[in-house]
């Protein structure tokens, strides 16, 4: 049971929310866009949206900096 996060194989955890996944991945940068199976997850739903098994997750970090 696994998911793909930014192209990398990651263990799937049952009932894990987007917010928890970001924390697990140590994605602390505030300017990110999250898509689950190409569908955008609004920032306001990170705490409720549950990651399904075998999902393809894109956590797009904006460029920022410099």
């Amino acid at each position: 049971m696994s998911i793909k996060v930014n192209g990398k194989q990651v263990i799937w955890i049952e009932n894990e929310t987007v917010k928890q996944l970001l924390k697990r991945m140590k994605y602390t940068f505030p300017l990110v866009v999250v898509k689950i199976n190409d569908k955008l997850v609004p920032r306001s739903s990170y705490t409720e949206t549950i990651i399904p098994d075998k999902a393809k997750i894109a956590v797009i970090h904006m460029i920022s900096g410099g």
């Binding site: 930014n6 192209g7 990398k8 994605y27 940068f29 894109a58 956590v59 797009i60 970090h61 904006m62 460029i63 920022s64 900096g65 410099g66």
Partner: peptide, 18 residues
């Protein structure tokens, strides 16, 4: 100097330009 391009997230984290 990073004022030409700052691509670390896009490349290393987002894996968007493999």
């Amino acid at each position: 100097q990073h004022d030409e391009a700052w691509l670390i997230f896009m490349d290393m984290v987002n894996n968007a330009i493999p």
